[in-house]
Amino acid sequence: MLKNIKIEQNKYVPYAFLLPALILLGFTVFFPAIQAFALSFTSYEYDITELPQWIGWNNFQRLWQDELFWQTIENTLLYLLGVVPVLIIAPLGLAIMVNQKLRGINWFRTAFYTPVVISMVVAGIAWKALYTQNGLLNQFLKQIGFTEGIRWLTDPKLALWSVMLVTIWKGLGYYMVIYLAGLQSISPELYEAAAIDGSDSWQKHLDITLPLMRPYLFLVGIISAISATKVFEEIYIMTQGGPRNSSKTVVYYLYEKAFQDLDISYACTIGLVLFLGILGLSIINVKLTADSNK
């Protein structure tokens, strides 16, 4: 009898340790999220000292008719298509290269990982200086024969792609480390057996590396997609959504409505749509991870 009581008591001990963290998350994450969800159905703008007024689905109807919102959706999807495939493939190639047993290879790993530890504010300011009309990039182009510099951040057709390059540069080292952990878990004996069967050089990576790295490929794909969906710092520092809203993403539009226009309820509506999109990506991640582990 006493043994059963002791087992019952021990069963609740882990929950006691989790309770402080749960309370903290409740105040900092869950409660604000529920409040933002409720504000999506109210009118709460300009004078934030007034109580919100219930307006039902009006904000969602406004969102449906908002052309600028749909443009930000288009820009965000374009960002996904431009960034995610590169961040899935290129870091894997880097990881394969730095996974070699060569002298000084740790220096190469450090060099590729260095952009990850650099603050996005610092990186954004540095790249913005490189992109200016008299920046190093245009100076280099003039040296090789281009008489006129490229308007990297002021041309509506190039601004978003120029920001994408910064995101890719910043994320290569991070995803390389994830792939490197997966590569080092693959037994060298598999490559030796493949070499005996005639699978060598890059063929061995097609036969062995890619199939065994599939869970990591799914993980990097989903993480990079979620990060690209939430991109903000690069846009804020380098373009602020311009020129002519060509680089304005959903998160930046949300920030603009909430903190510049003080249209809090409408910003919460945009945030709710963004949350549902990220939730969908997270569900896909869980599903793909579960299928890959079968």
Rank of each mutant, 00 (worst) to 15 (best):
Y175M: 06
I284Y: 10
F146T: 04
D47W: 06
L81M: 09
A195L: 08
A267C: 10
G82Q: 09
L254F: 15
W152H: 04
G242E: 02
L217Q: 04
S40E: 12
I226H: 14
Y253H: 04
D197P: 12
N138G: 03
E67S: 07
I144N: 07
K157T: 06
L153M: 02
A38C: 05
A195K: 10
K204E: 12
V13W: 15
L137N: 01
A228H: 06
N10R: 14
Y236N: 02
V121N: 08
L217H: 01
E148V: 10
Y253E: 08
T229K: 07
L80S: 08
A159Q: 10
I105R: 11
L279T: 15
A16T: 15
N285K: 12
L92Q: 05
I222K: 04
W107L: 00
K11S: 07
V163R: 09
A111T: 14
A36H: 03
L78P: 01
P52H: 03
N4L: 06
V13G: 12
I278Y: 11
R109E: 09
L180Y: 06
I144L: 09
I235W: 09
L165G: 03
L288T: 10
L78N: 13
K170N: 06
D66S: 01
Y255C: 06
G56V: 02
R214D: 01
E67R: 15
Q65V: 09
V177M: 14
A195M: 13
A193W: 04
S43Q: 12
Y216H: 11
T154Q: 10
H205Q: 03
P215D: 04
T239E: 00
N75E: 14
P52W: 05
E256G: 07
D261C: 02
L18P: 13
I150P: 01
I178S: 07
N106E: 12
E192L: 04
E148N: 15
L19P: 12
L206F: 08
R214H: 12
I89R: 09
Y236S: 05
S246P: 03
N285W: 11
A16M: 15
F17W: 13
Y113C: 07
G271R: 09
Q143F: 01
C268D: 07
